[in-house]
Design a protein around this nucleic acid. Structure first.
Lengths: 190, 190, 190, 190
DNA sequence: CATGAATGAGGTTTCATTCAT
DNA sequence: CATGAATGAAACCTCATTCAT
């Protein structure tokens, strides 16, 4: 049920695994999911065999990258929520998730296309985020900062959509800001 | 300069071409751009050779699918714009474009990834849409129905984003409606 | 047994056949046997179907081109042999055959590679040349102008070889001339 | 700059590479450059992937075969030149090159047809041969054994041509010998 | 007869994955 | 455990040949 290793990895093995994850994240994000396993292994300075020892499948690697992203996101979300009032926390987190999710759609889609239920492997880490987001949404709604009829699914869809929108505007920060304003304004009770 | 064929295609050729486009649209949309040319040809009931006679490259096929979508879209946009007042036309078109664009991101992305300037082949049909949208935006802004600081790029990004968001909500019309409300509300001057 | 058409071709059909042969000769010679039937047909201004009506196979077309070359060659050889004395006729013909055979190796090889006995279809026209050459060789040997131990096969091999050699020197006429001198000198009794 | 592998190949890899080269040489020579990579791989007892790991392109394989032939040739030429006097060395080498060059024309032609400068990849090994031949030619000319007006290009063309001629006479050693006599005699000062 | 659209086997090449070293 | 050579299915595309128009 858990992704945690059976026994603690040897030091060098752990180093290789971490390095592979880092490189894979970077390559998948910048060059798409089409990059070959061979290239990722080479960029990480290991042989393909090592890659496949740690991740039995290319898809498993994709999954692991996703999981780590979600975990990082969950951690930062938690931290942020603790620092501001309910409304501020909600809007800050919205921005944070969007900024951190660049490229995520590609992964989700790749996993989905491979016919696998995205929820099976990502259930645990994404559940953490969902819970955080639900909590933040409820808080902001109680504080009257967000329209009360909005549900969690819509919030997540809007996060995905805003990610897509801002990705398309990569080079123009002012335009990205205006897009944020539109969506965040729209979230307020009318 | 024109997309129209040099001579009228023979009856069977036209049938095959149309059928290929239909099948390709469907396959690309439902299963992603990874589907093989061979499968598309088989699904269309023709040999691969026929596919490649009509579209000399897989990318050319993708392009053709895109072009047809954009043309359909442009036609409907024009019709709608004529029927309502400036504000109504703008909001109606926004919905229309989003509804018609399901799956389009995949294509745009695929074309971009293939290193081709999306504007080269799609320039004409997409320019028509851009012009329409720019016109509608200006009209709605003049009518005070849309915040005046919004530019065309942001509008297009928001269209893309809203498409992504509603795609994720496919099964729940009420939730889709709430997403639309958020974005359309956000577009109004605050 | 004969390549002559069963009945006289219609005027346009004959024109097409001739044109196809001309174009095919040119394309095969300048661009190699790799040129596609489609390209040859297009260059000849007819559809592929027409090409295949006249020549049921690409190989048949190659054959026809060869045959025509050989026939032309035979005719010129005959003419030349009548005009000079035995020695002169021999050496003139040697040069003529070499000059006219540029590119011929490609064809011979293509036919051979296709697993067909080159002699089956080319037997008749090439027999004419062989006879001419045999006659010329005998005459020149009687006149003491060519070493008496040389047989017809060696003569033909030397023709092929000299063709290959001069083809490699295409751009430099003086060098070609020196190659001719070497071979023709070598043919004389030592 | 060097053709030597960066690190010593693993034992099996080296075996496969050598075997591929051997088989490719044989197949290309006996059946033409048309043989498919798949067939070569199968004949060598490896998968296609292995073939393409060693030679990233069919052309690269052709090149490698050529290079090996030329290198072998250069080595033998060097040895021979050291053993005989200037005239003997020249004539011996002429025969050696011709005997070793059977089929070489096919490769050269294939490479040329593929639009690649034959000199780019083969520059080094073929330069060695050219140098050797130039040296031998000069020596034989100084010794008065070869006509003084003959240049290196003509010599090479004659080698090519004699190769073509003797190839055609494969089954009859006496005829081949007579062809050699004609050419070698022609090379002597008249 | 001419046309050119359709066919599909076959060619080259890539890449996730396995396994000998 | 790490390595990277080997594998072979599958992708895209070409082209000789057939046959409906």
């Amino acid at each position: 049920m858990s992704g945690a290793p059976q026994r603690p990895l040897r030091a060098d093995a752990a180093r290789n695994r971490a390095r592979l994850l880092d490189i894979a994240t970077q390559e998948f994000t910048t060059r798409g999911v089409g990059v070959s396993t061979e290239e990722i292994a080479r960029a990480a300075g290991v042989g393909v065999g090592t890659l496949f020892r740690h991740f039995p499948t290319k898809e498993a690697l994709l999954q692991a990258v996703m999981v780590r992203r979600l975990e990082t996101l969950a951690a930062r979300t938690t931290r942020l929520a603790a620092e501001s009032g309910p409304a501020g926390a909600f809007f800050d987190c919205f921005r944070l998730v969007v900024d951190q999710s660049a490229g995520k759609n590609e992964f989700t889609r790749a996993l989905a296309a491979a016919g696998m239920d995205a929820h099976s492997a990502l259930r645990e880490p994404s559940a953490v985020i969902r819970d955080k987001l639900a909590e933040l949404l409820a808080g902001a709604q109680r504080a009257g900062a967000v329209r009360p009829d909005l549900g969690l699914p819509e919030l997540i869809a809007l996060l995905t959509g805003t990610t897509a929108a801002t990705e398309q505007l990569g080079t123009d920060p002012a335009a990205r800001e205006r897009v944020f304003e539109v969506v965040l304004d729209g979230l307020r009770p009318r």
